[in-house]
Write a protein that binds this DNA or RNA. Structure first.
Length: 291
DNA sequence: AATGATGGCAACCGCCCCTAT
DNA sequence: GATAGGGGCGGTTGCCATCAT
């Protein structure tokens, strides 16, 4: 007996999300919290499958996301983690607050791989390319096997990566890359940080005031001007312009929304430099809804 | 200016794992 | 223990923008 599809795909919309859909999804999650994803499309009035909603939220709409290219230190960390974990992007992402597995995967495939090759390092084995040639075939085979990346060179027979909530992914550690657990600023401050732990905005955390709308971000989100490794980050308070339809809490009518955008994306006063949409998406929005 | 090639990235697909029944 | 459902993960696709010719 085959498994039922995760949702009835008949009549469901696919492809890029529209501004309207994003609004609905954000509103739904802010109102209901992150409940059963299967129920989200109905609650939000979306013709999308729950899975699509989850991906859109986690990869794009989540307010704690950082956007843009990885910083040098983030890149180094990704490389180190990849050398130990292989293509386990979610695990890697769990060590980079505000970054998603999808984002890291894309960055790896488009930038970091090339960079490593330029430096004469094989992105698969993390060894100098000359020394990898002779073992190339063998390593390729190993790569195809789960968990092959870690331990293949004998530096780490096993790894220990802590998962949140005590869920254990304990594999005991004998790695020479222990600095990742102990010395790296990201992990020093949050040694077992996982994206799963990123606090989500709950309805009660949305503070609506008369003249302005304040959203408290109890997250590790920081202005893009620089990555802060401080664990004592206080909740970021973000001031949005006046909203006429506070029931939408965060994104209101499109008229207001363009104002919000300018506010959000302008780094001017250093209050906030979240860039919830990149230029690519922004243009899609422009085409569709910004008239 | 027009056309083709390439790169970047959001989104989708299918499989796997975990949990509830 | 078997089965079904939900969520997560990694690989892949396809669209769009930019660059090269």
């Amino acid at each position: 007996m085959g498994r039922q599809p995760c949702c009835d795909k008949v009549g469901l919309k696919k492809g890029p999300w529209t501004a309207e859909e994003d609004k609905k999804l954000i509103n739904c999650i802010l109102t209901n919290g992150q409940c059963c994803w299967r129920a989200v499309p109905k609650l939000a009035g979306l013709l999308r499958c729950g899975k699509s909603c989850r991906l859109r939220w986690t990869n794009y709409l989540r307010p704690d996301l950082k956007r843009g290219l990885l910083s040098e230190s983030e890149e180094k960390l990704v490389i180190e983690l990849h050398s130990r974990l292989g293509n386990r992007w979610s695990k890697i992402a769990s060590h980079l607050p505000g970054r998603t597995d999808n984002e890291i995967k894309n960055q790896w495939n488009t930038h970091i791989k090339k960079k490593l090759r330029k430096m004469g390092i094989d992105p698969i084995s993390h060894k100098p390319i000359s020394s990898t040639d002779e073992h190339h075939q063998k390593e390729e085979q190993q790569q195809e096997q789960p968990g092959a990346a870690a331990g293949e060179d004998g530096r780490s027979e096993s790894i220990s990566l802590q998962c949140p909530q005590g869920q254990e992914e304990e594999k005991s550690i004998t790695s020479s890359f222990d600095f990742i657990e102990t010395d790296h600023p990201f992990l020093q401050d949050s040694p077992s940080f996982c994206t799963d732990e990123v606090p989500m905005i709950q309805p009660h955390e949305i503070i609506l005031s008369g003249a302005s709308t304040t959203i408290s971000f109890p997250s590790t989100c920081t202005p893009s001007s620089g990555y802060s490794s401080s664990s004592s980050l206080k909740a970021e308070e973000i001031q949005f312009p006046c909203m006429e339809r506070p029931e939408l809490t965060y994104l209101c009518g499109m008229d207001d929304f363009s104002q919000i955008w300018d506010s959000i994306c302008s780094d001017g006063d250093g209050t906030l430099a979240l860039d919830p949409l990149n230029h690519y998406q922004r243009k899609a929005w422009d085409r569709e809804s910004w008239n």
